[in-house]
Amino acid sequence: MNETFQNLSVNPDELPSVKTADFNHIEKGYLKVSLISSGVFFLILLIGAFCLIFFNDDIEGTTMVYSITLGSIALLWLLNIIVTIKAFPKKQYAIRERDIIYTKGLLWWERTSIPFNRIQHAELKQGPVDRMFKLHSLKIFTAGGQSSDLVIPGLNEETASRLKEFVLGKTAMDGSDN
């Protein structure tokens, strides 16, 4: 029995808990996508830093200078790789009868639930790296600003389009049956 909220007409403990929903992991390939995308970013950063020291006459290109700047960038890269790998299993989604749920984050974990009857629109997106691994992202839009929009990345072709159709179908249904 929930002691905190006794004034509510329904005891929250008797409602289906979001925590125990049937969560699915996203495709393993998406880990590679994230690693490649951040890899490209850090590589550009490394090259940029190198060029800056190499071609700038004011900075003396000693081994010391190179190792400090390039080393710290490489360290950040390593940290990023570790966090990305560790955080990957936290990326999970679940579909319940009337809402869609997505969780993510290692250091800052979050779980977002959006009821189907509040969804305005859903679309599939595919970035250049996604395309190499044949992965899609499902983008879910609600009314108002972007604060409550949701993106579920790393879905394969079939799951993605099935999910989108499902969500749109549910949205149309839950919105109208009154």
């Binding site: 929930n2 905190t4 909220f5 509510l8 329904v10 929250p12 403990d13 409602l15 289906p16 808990s17 979001v18 925590k19 009337r98 809402d99 639930s113 009821p115 189907f116 009857n117 509040r118 839950d174 049956d177 009154n178």
Partner: peptide, 19 residues
């Protein structure tokens, strides 16, 4: 966290059952 999860299920229930 218990309070948050109770509120989470309750609010979702309210939204999903309101026409």
């Amino acid at each position: 966290i218990e309070e948050a999860e109770a509120l989470e299920s309750f609010i979702l229930y309210r939204v999903e059952n309101d026409r």
